Structures are given as structure tokens and as C-alpha cells.
Lab assay of single mutants.
Amino acid sequence: LVRYRTISKIPQITLNFVDLKGDPFLASPTSDREIIAPKIKERTHNVTEKVTQVLSLGADVLPEYKLQAPRIHRWTILHYSPFKAVWDWLILLLVIYTAVFTPYSAAFLLKETEEGPPATECGYACQPLAVVDLIVDIMFIVDILINFRTTYVNANEEVVSHPGRIAVHYFKGWFLIDMVAAIPFDLLIFGSGSEELIGLLKTARLLRLVRVARKLDRYSEYGAAVLFLLMCTFALIAHWLACIWYAIGNMEQPHMDSRIGWLHNLGDQIGKPYNSSGLGGPSIKDKYVTALYFTFSSLTSVGFGNVSPNTNSEKIFSICVMLIGSLMYASIFGNVSAIIQRLYSGTARYHTQMLRVREFIRFHQIPNPLRQRLEEYFQHAWSYTNGIDMNAVLKGFPECLQADICLHLNRSLLQHCKPFRGATKGCLRALAMKFKTTHAPPGDTLVHAGDLLTALYFISRGSIEILRGDVVVAILGKNDIFGEPLNLYARPGKSNGDVRALTYCDLHKIHR
């Protein structure tokens, strides 16, 4: 019993810090008490220290592992850092350059016999395009090294910054494609005289377009951006097909006994025919423009016929181009109408809503002055909100995010209106959640004399007048207030005048 009563005193000691020596009952000389009392004092002292730490809000209350900052290894790049964003855009520009100039170089340097010394005699450094290609190869190699040090988000939505895990993730992902696209074939085969082989191998750079397509997928929600990307894709495919079309004609031209190829026909049409040795002929500019003209006309199913396939190889390629053109029509131009419709969806919704308003007016036989006010209010409210119901949009977000959005939407009023000066951010967040926005066209009466005042109004834009009878008592403008002081009276009061809008007004109100 003594032991039980001794232990039962522990909660009292913990909360009230009572010393055991003052209790005459606990001072009985028993061996059990002498053993338990020192333990009680020690526990009391420890609990006292913990309570003191909690009340003082000291940093040592938290466990040590929670006080440590997340460790980022040296030379690790955050995937959302500004440097990584700028670097990704730079790589994107280099990939676009590669997609345009690599097929052009591979096709127009394929057994090209233009006048001038061969590239091997001039030297590697004197070729501007080769120098640019070398810079692109170096940048792609540097990009691989950067990807080995860039964080990523795993399946659990955690940012991984450990170098080993980053390397394994990159090896399992895009490393092989990036490595093949970054191989400097110019340096590996330079001086061997195989410019045709170098041009063909350099087309491996186009593998990076797969990554670019995935990154550009984030802009699919913007109709104008999608339309622009589709047109660029169409032009890029036409450019690639033009390079292939020229390569076919250029390879067949020296081996044909009869002059029936499209390059021969082009030379005869523009007065620059090929001679018996295969030299001469149109310039590279004429060849490229004509090839691009043929691919565009074939892809769009126009086909004027002034550039036509004559050999079997050219006919087979033309059939493939027609098939590609039909697929592009289905996948690209078939979506253009939907994209344009999405661009004008706001206008369509406006006309639909206006039609419903006019049908309501016609069905209920609203008189002319009231009908005009109804239409003007709808037009003004639509121009202010673009038909978007803010309350319906915010309803799907958590309250903390709703408060931040409301604070942002009402920031101008909260910053410049005098009653809100000096208020804490928590108070402003709470008030912003209570605001209701209303609009009024010129001549609209917001409050009639004798109406119950259940709200306090803040003028965000425009001006109003307060009338008693036919006498203008006051004219209020931006950041002015009218209405009933909230919670100042037990019952809502009545208006002693009319409140009429002089201009288009936007008002925020808080109800009782």
C-alpha cells in the first residue's frame, strides 16, 4: 500500500512540481520508500527539464536528425535550378540546329562534286560548318556529364541527390541515346576521305529529338503553341524528305545512260545542264529549293507536275512521300480545326451564355430598361472574369491554397485601402477568403433606401454616388468604403439613402 501511494504521487509531482519531503505519510521509514524516492526525484528532475525545454521552444527539443539540413553532394545540380533551365534551352537550340543542318550536310555532301578544292585539302579548321559541328559534339558530351550530376524525382516524389543513384537512373534511361548522339564521328573518321560515311553517321544526332519531343509535351495545353509546333514538325519532315529526294537524284545521276532524272530535267529547265562528264548542272541553292518544293507539294497532295519522278527509285520514294503525307494530314492537320476551336472556345461560351440571357429575357418578357441593365451587367461581368467562376475553380483546392490565391487576387485593395494598413498577414488572409466580388454598370442602383444592410462594401474600381431623395450626399471612388460596420450592432440596419454607380464599378463586399 505504501508503495502504491508513493507511485500514485508521481503525476502530481510531474505537473505541480511538489516535493515529496513535505508529505508526512511518505516520510515513514520503510525500505521500499527509501529505494523508490531517489528514482522519483530523478524522474521528476528529468520531466521538469523536458517541460522547461518545451515551454522555452528551444531548438534542442527536436531530434538531432530533424535539425540537420538535407545534404547535397558537391557538384550536384538541382533539376529545378536556373542554371539547369538555361542549359536545357541551350541544348534545345543545338538539337534544332542539328535537326536542320545534319540531314542537309549528309545529303548535299554525298558524292558532291561542286567546283573547288576537296575538304581534305583545305583542312578541318577552315570549314565553318565542321567547326560548328565540333562545338555541338562537345556541348552534347558536356550535357552527358551534367546529367550524371543532376537530381531527379523518383516514384515516391522524392528528390534524389545521391550521385550513385543518379548515375544508375541515367544509365537506365537516356544515357545510350545521348551517348550515340554525342559521338564525334568527324574526329574519329577525319582524314579518311569518307565524307559520305561521316554525313550518314552524323544523322545519329537526330535521336535527341525524342527527348525534345517529350520536353515539349508540357506545352500541349496551349493551343497556339501546339499549332506552332505542328507546323514546325511538318516543315521539318518536309526538309528531311527534300534532303533524301536530292540524295536519290544525286546518286543516280552519274550512272544513268539517259538523262531522265529530276536533276537533269531541272538543269535543262533553268539552262544549267550537266555536261557529258557529269559536272556542271544547277547550283546547290536551286537543287535544295526545288527538292523542298517537290516534297511540300507531295505532302499537301497538290502535285503540280513541273517536278516529277521519272526513275524507279524516284517513283518509289514519291509513293512513300504520299503515304507520309496522308498520315500527316490525319495526325496534324486533322487537329488544326480542334485547336482553332479551342482557341476561340471563350468567344463561343460568351455567345452561348448571351443567347441564354436573351432567351430568358424573351421568355419572361423583361421590360426594355431592365433588359438593357441585365445585358450590360452580363457584358461587364464577362469582360472582368472571362466567364470563369472563381468560386467553382477554387473549390477543388485546399483552404490554405485558397487563402493564398484570394490574398493575391485582392492584393491591390488590401495594400491601398486604409482600414487594412497594419493588419497582420493572417488577418488579411482571413479577410480575403470572405470577400465576394460584384460588378455594376453605370446607372445601376446597388442599394435602395430602406434596404437591409448586411454587408460592408469596398470599391475596387469606378465611382458611385450616394443620394437622399434627389440630393447627392457624397461621391465615392476607388478604395472608399460604404455599408454597415460589421458586428457593431446586434441587428442589421437599414439604408438611409440610395447608392448608384456612376461608372463601371468593381466592388468587394463582406457579409455579416
Rank of each mutant, 00 (worst) to 15 (best):
P128L: 14
G278M: 01
Q127G: 05
V86G: 05
E115C: 07
H448T: 10
L78R: 09
Y288H: 01
T311R: 01
V226C: 12
P309S: 01
N275W: 01
V160S: 01
S301E: 01
D257K: 13
A225H: 04
G305D: 01
N310P: 01
L431R: 02
Q372G: 10
V142R: 01
I141Q: 01
F296N: 01
A449G: 06
T120Y: 06
R358G: 03
G346W: 03
V393A: 05
H380V: 08
N310I: 01
G281R: 01
E314C: 01
E195C: 15
D133E: 15
V336R: 02
T120H: 04
A330I: 03
H73A: 12
G334C: 03
I244M: 05
M231A: 01
F101M: 14
L394P: 02
L90W: 05
A99Y: 01
P163D: 01
R342E: 08
K66V: 09
P82F: 05
G325E: 01
S412A: 09
S220K: 13
D268I: 14
G249N: 03
D133V: 01
A107F: 01
S298D: 01
L409D: 02
I144G: 01
L446C: 01
N310Y: 01
T120E: 13
W75C: 04
G334F: 02
T347G: 10
P128D: 01
N154P: 03
N250A: 14
V160F: 01
M328Y: 01
A403R: 04
L201I: 07
N410V: 07
P273D: 01
T347K: 03
V357C: 04
P70C: 05
L355D: 13
L374H: 01
L209C: 05
N312F: 01
I366C: 01
L263I: 05
L67F: 15
K287L: 03
L200F: 10
E157M: 15
A348K: 08
W382L: 04
F185D: 01
L266M: 03
P184A: 01
F234A: 03
K84H: 01
V86M: 12
L343H: 05
G422V: 09
L209S: 13
V447E: 03
M390R: 07
V100E: 01
